Simulated scan of single mutants.
Amino acid sequence: MAKKSRTKARTQSRPSEVEGEVGPRQPCPCGSGKRYKACHGAAGGAPAPFVGRPFEGLPSECDVVAMRELVPAATAPLTLKDHADRTVQLCTLLPMAAPAMVRDSGEIWLGLQVQHNFGDVSRDLGAVLLKALESDAGIVGLTDPPGEGPRLQDLVAGDRLSVTVHDGFDFWIADVEEGERAALAAALEQANTAASPTARLTTVEAAYWTNVGAKEHLRWVMPEPEGPLLDALARLHAAGRDVLVDGSRFVGMFRAHGLLAPVWDLPVGTGPEPLEDPAERFAADLAEALADTSALTTEQRSARSGLANRQVTLR
């Protein structure tokens, strides 16, 4: 009698995979460095359920994701629902990677690029902001899981953020007296050296050009659900309609905080200005492709498969 196929048995016993779902042996998206099954995928093994799309409902969600994961130096003022008299600045990175700082003026700086690893990034930010509102001055952060409470989108008013991209981190010392700047000089120099030149396009939302020295890229965070967005990108890729400028190439995508960020390689020397009109045209083509609900052709399915294999999960 022939032996039963172990491969078949394993296949049949394996839970069905859902597109975008984190596998048990993959790195946990919370950033802990552990496998998912040993972190937020373990029963009782994580401090809180992992929230895959923590910034959903926050004004300018795509820009917030970009500021947290892709943009070196940027700020955006926040208007609070219950503390309209307080000035709050959302920042990519703060000195010493502080979660928040209350300045001598009373202004609050809230840092996005902080890894608390408590499961819900937006809840962490909300808890830090509430602590900062109660503090007179200095650095504010979390040492323990924040527990239940308001998330950042529960505290912020408005429907859009005004993002300013900076050449470096000189905004750290903009309100510091001349004699006190020396204490931050070393940290500022190190941060500025590591910051790649970056610019936000003006004709479309959440698209950022960057120069990393040997290459230039356009990284564009998009709000659409992953499945329909992959279908639409595959239609355009198969038709050769995803070339922004001569010599550019659509190379793949980041997945961060529940959203996809398509990435283009650009010829060195392109700069952000020549991308404005092509990006606007691509946005129109993408909207048309998203509205197309017909079945993908064989060529488009092949393109989709290739694009799906070129995803890198950041968080």
Score class of each variant (00 low, 15 high):
273 E>I: 02
155 L>A: 12
211 N>I: 01
88 V>S: 09
231 D>R: 00
202 T>Y: 06
177 E>S: 07
311 Q>K: 13
134 E>H: 13
30 C>T: 14
26 Q>P: 06
207 A>F: 01
48 A>R: 15
154 D>E: 07
103 R>S: 01
295 A>S: 12
278 P>M: 05
135 S>D: 09
45 G>D: 05
199 A>N: 04
104 D>N: 07
48 A>K: 09
288 E>G: 11
206 A>D: 02
14 R>S: 11
236 L>H: 02
91 C>S: 14
8 K>I: 15
92 T>W: 02
217 H>Y: 08
135 S>G: 06
117 N>A: 11
248 S>W: 00
36 Y>C: 10
274 P>R: 01
58 L>P: 05
232 A>L: 06
303 A>W: 02
205 E>W: 01
276 E>Q: 05
4 K>P: 13
91 C>Y: 00
153 Q>T: 06
257 H>A: 01
187 A>F: 05
162 S>Q: 12
252 G>S: 07
51 V>L: 09
305 S>L: 00
8 K>T: 03
220 W>E: 05
179 G>I: 06
266 L>Q: 04
220 W>R: 03
25 R>Y: 15
177 E>R: 12
197 P>F: 10
227 G>K: 10
9 A>Y: 00
300 Q>D: 13
83 H>E: 14
13 S>C: 13
10 R>E: 03
313 T>R: 14
204 V>W: 04
307 L>N: 06
227 G>W: 00
14 R>I: 04
40 H>G: 05
108 I>Y: 01
144 D>T: 10
136 D>S: 12
106 G>S: 03
251 V>M: 12
52 G>C: 13
257 H>G: 04
304 R>F: 02
217 H>A: 01
275 L>K: 04
203 T>Q: 09
89 Q>F: 05
232 A>N: 10
220 W>L: 04
61 E>R: 07
238 A>E: 13
280 E>I: 02
170 D>F: 02
268 V>K: 15
235 R>Q: 08
150 P>W: 11
168 G>M: 07
283 A>E: 03
68 R>M: 02
259 L>E: 01
291 A>M: 09
90 L>Y: 07
66 A>Q: 10
238 A>I: 04
138 G>F: 02
194 A>L: 10
177 E>V: 08
24 P>K: 15
302 S>Y: 00
210 T>I: 10
178 E>S: 07
88 V>F: 05
283 A>H: 08
297 T>G: 14
62 C>N: 02
82 D>P: 06
168 G>Q: 11
39 C>A: 12
233 L>F: 06
107 E>H: 00
281 R>M: 01
15 P>N: 07
260 L>H: 08
28 C>R: 13
258 G>E: 00
97 A>E: 15
275 L>P: 05
74 A>T: 10
206 A>I: 01
59 P>S: 09
283 A>K: 04
46 A>V: 05
277 D>W: 03
228 P>Y: 05
62 C>A: 14
205 E>R: 02
305 S>P: 00
237 H>G: 10
194 A>Y: 07
1 M>S: 15
111 G>K: 04
207 A>L: 01
14 R>K: 12
107 E>Q: 05
195 A>L: 08
13 S>P: 12
44 G>T: 09
18 V>Q: 14
194 A>R: 07
229 L>C: 01
164 T>R: 14
67 M>A: 00
287 A>K: 10
